[in-house]
Amino acid sequence: MKSSRRNFLKIAGITALGVGARPAIDTIAAVGGRGPTEPEPILKQNEKALTAKQWAMVVDTRKIKSEKDVAPLYEACHKIHNVPDMPIKRHEIKWIWPEQFHHAFPDLHSEFLSEKIHHTTFPVLCNHCENPPCVRVCPTKATFKRESDGVVVMDYHRCIGCRFCLAACPYGARSFNFFDPREHIKEINLKFARRTKGVVEKCNFCVERLAEGIEPACVEASKGILTFGDLYDPESEVRKLIAENFTIRRKIHLGTSPAVYYIV
């Protein structure tokens, strides 16, 4: 008795919903959906896309003579990715930016550092770690390590804005949109999406350019200061540079295994 009444209510409810929604669906969809024999669509990687097991970057800081040498690469990145220029400093959004040695490498700092190093500014960005703590802590997999090429990617559609990843990142590489960023983009790049308030963003190693077969914007603008390539391809430019020079990485004692190498 009880269950049949419940069933009746269920059916009545579903019917009411159907009857109510029907005219709206009918008018929008004048003719019914797909033909049954159509082949399934295929999703695939772009043919011209650059691929790697783990993308990596080498920063040759010996080539940085002054601030002027590196300024264009910050600008190129922020312009192309619609990175806003937030008016309040504590809300800053940064994908790649300059730091002094003792901020970029606080654990390697010494009081009697060479004058040259002391005055060099080091470009810092997301390290696309091989063992990223930010990915470990994300409760929705909104940030994840892309299996195809090791890029640590943000899915802005999924991010709930809990900022656990900001706490987990030991490099300060992540920024949160405290306000709507859209009003603060100086010159908009219509080819690239903006972000909404309440989500985290960071360097994406230019995945949108890699898919088109071109190198990251900062690398292109750096005139040889930055080199980009596959860490696991012994023939790659980055591997050659790492093999031939002494390189350092940021905070390697934390076990994150950063993929950005610095020649000093």
Partner: peptide, 10 residues
């Protein structure tokens, strides 16, 4: 949360 309407993504 920055995006509270997406909380159930968890």
């Amino acid at each position: 949360l920055g995006q509270p309407t997406r909380a159930l993504n968890v």
